[in-house]
Nucleic acid binder design. Structure first.
Lengths: 223, 223
DNA sequence: CCGTAAATGTCGTCG
DNA sequence: CGACGACGTTTACGG
């Protein structure tokens, strides 16, 4: 990783065109070739070029000159360096990477093991029930044996309701399943999503992740 | 901006839980408080905390110890520093910021000036036609005076078709406008988006940005 | 502050 | 490699 602090101006031409007037910025060149340009604010770089890309530096002994970064898609990042204030390099080595927990997959797994949370007597038919337009998170049968499609989100927004609606439209064309009703389950459901869902006869369920996990832990302890 | 290269392990607890085993990484503390953790790969940080947040460093004279970063939402980022390899700080000052061009706004402007691209004899009623659920990009009348709602995207995907569908549902309740048909216009239309659109009777139009701009330039030259 | 729409989104996964 | 959906999406913009 090379870290250069320099007074520079930047131009990007690719998916859009963008220009950065001259100022002091951090230029970061990563081991994989990625180039980032950071300012004092925001989590996101002002400009960048993702790996794989090619950096060609045409500079003098003081580091003044231009960096030209290109990739196969024809994107072009040009950095005009006026003054270098700092320049250091160090290889960080390979990162062991990130371990995640708590996303939608977890919710789906937990709810699949406890579909009775959705209604007494409910049974799971299948997780990731396949359809031509993608898998339905959970396909269930309610206490009367009626089919229910469940869409699970961490945060329930309009898109999720639209997605479930498309599944329901499709599943209801299958005489072996129809009539299929819908449940929209999420840790948090936005008001507009709830309104849209209920307008379409879809039931909204707010999930309590801690409670689901708690019950799961209790179950686990029994074995 | 402070740049620290350190051997460290990291834990994040907030919207999800994540853990980074011990390795050498770049820790970046920006002037606005933002904390970023970068490895040798990817344009995106391994972990971060966005401003506004509070950094509390509990370290010895060698920089070894822990950084605890918190924010008002209760998110927590913990960095356990085992060894500091480099530590430097420099204020970059305020950045003048980015100038962009070539996004959806440009497409909308160009197409608004050339609605005849969508059909001979078409007229523009209004750009950003207001509705209770948001503005319709273009409202037009076709050669027979029938109302057409146009949704413009750079890349046409399913979400855009859903968006247009909601607008059409709403506009068709207005007897002064109904029947309203839909046009989905984008520089690129994904197959599933096209299928969904056509299934709903929405016409898909692929836009040529260069051609639209070319014609615009010609018009401009005439004045 | 909430809600929606855009993004050089980025990142997996799967065909 | 392209399409699709999730993301600690982030970010900008309006009410």
């Amino acid at each position: 990783m090379r870290l250069v602090i320099a007074r520079c101006s930047v131009d990007y031409a690719g998916r859009l065109s963008a220009h950065l007037p001259e100022a002091v910025r951090l230029l970061m060149v990563k081991g994989d070739g990625t180039v980032l340009i950071h300012s004092e604010t925001s989590h996101r770089p002002l400009n960048w070029m993702a790996s794989p890309c090619l950096l060609r530096a045409d500079v003098d002994e003081a580091g003044v000159g231009s960096w030209i970064v290109t990739n196969k898609s024809g994107e072009l990042l040009t950095i005009e360096i006026v003054e270098v204030l700092q320049d250091s390099a160090l290889d960080l080595g390979v990162d062991p990477g990130l371990v995640k927990d708590g996303v939608e997959a977890q919710l789906q797994k937990l709810l699949a093991e406890q579909v009775e949370v959705l209604g007494s007597g409910w049974r799971l038919v299948r997780r990731e029930y396949p359809t031509p337009i993608g898998p339905v998170d959970l396909l269930c049968r309610d206490e009367s044996g009626r089919t229910v499609a469940v869409e699970i989100k961490r945060r329930g927004e309009i898109n999720g309701v639209e997605q479930l609606t498309r599944y329901l439209d499709l599943l209801n064309r299958d005489p072996l399943l129809a009539p299929v009703s819908g449940v929209f389950a999420a840790q948090e459901i936005k008001p507009q999503a709830r309104t849209l869902a209920e307008d379409r006869g879809i039931t909204c369920v707010v999930l309590d992740y801690e409670a689901l996990r708690g019950v799961d832990d209790v179950d686990a302890r029994l074995f």
